[in-house]
Design a binder for these strands. Sequence first.
RNA 1: GCCGGGAUGGCAGAGGUGGUCAACGCGCGUGUCUGAAAAACACGUUAUCCAGGUUCGACUCCUGGUCCCGGCA
Length: 346
Amino acid sequence: MKKQKLGVNKQKLLIICGPTATGKTDLAIKLAKKFNGEIVSADSRQVYKGMDIGTGKDLSVNSRFQVLQRSHLGKNQGATLTKKFQIGYYLVNDIPIWGLDIVNPDYQFNVGEYSKIAQKIIIDIWQREKLPIIVGGTGLYIKSLLEPMEYTVIPPNKKLRKILVHDDVTILRKKLEKLDKKRLEDMNNSDRNNPRRLIRAIEIAEYLKTHKNYHFNNIYHCSGNKNSLLLVGLTAGKKILFKRIEQRIKKRLKQGIIREIKKLVKMGYGWNLPAMSGLGYKEFKPYFEKKQKLAEVIKKWQTDEQNYAKKQLVWFLKMPAVWFDITVPDFYTVVEKRICNFLQKA
RNA sequence: GCCGGGAUGGCAGAGGUGGUCAACGCGCGUGUCUGAAAAACACGUUAUCCAGGUUCGACUCCUGGUCCCGGCA
């Protein structure tokens, strides 16, 4: 028996974004309790199994991964979404958090896959008449839920990539020009010098050559109704932000980040994997190779996190978010009121 | 104490017959963004140890000082 779908207008989506260490998840859990919500992570690093402390999953010791039996993401149908992915949730404080532990660290995960999975989860939450709350620091992942990204569905072509990595940007540009001149012209200077972007553009052009009737189909998009979407941005002054980062690093060391990395390395996950390029992991490479002292690693980690927070702000400030300063005393009340208001609108 | 080498931007570190000069890297700052995004890429950013002298002109040559490094004692 299918539950009756809610009307389009009732399909609200709440998004909480902002730089690292602003307490996004804590706020989301509070809000989920208040508004009958479930959390969907939008984080490019938390999708990896076994990478918990460094990516800040903040799972309690006894939280276990589970799938929802009756949902279309459940055991049977969830498996058909694709065999590669594990889709389920952790219960934290009785609130489900989705989008964690989707793949192993040696898998190269990406936006397109995230977008597809997250959209399915969101629809599932709606079907259970609850409020999906997207929480995360990965701007591109959030963007992929806000607007249809036409070409993200085109899969990577590993063979082609293997050949193209040896070309320098001038050659790549020539190759792209031959395939799709307009695409090259549309690129800005930064992208035109970015081998990764050029290779991707060539990849797309090659794909379209052999798939003439390619048609993009987004599962849903929120851009239709203004009242169906609220973006909440969290921020704080740089000084406070950096202080919070420092404290969190200390916490992660205490939680056993070194042990976690040791385990990952022992399992055979190499330093060159994209998953291991994340903050709080890559800094430890010289330490494990006995080339650097722990104190230096921590210092580097701190500045890397700071820079990351700054970069995140560059991204998020362009988004149509309502911003809240987390240091304001009645911060939570203000946010709650704003969301109440949002949920009441048709 | 003696002999030798050195002192260049926030750091590390090149160069050039005395002629706006001051590389590259790191850092820092500002950005870009359609399947690696905690990634990748673009743009910008600051200096010649101190006091004299020679010279039209010295970071580059000379004298003195200060500091650092190596060797001898």
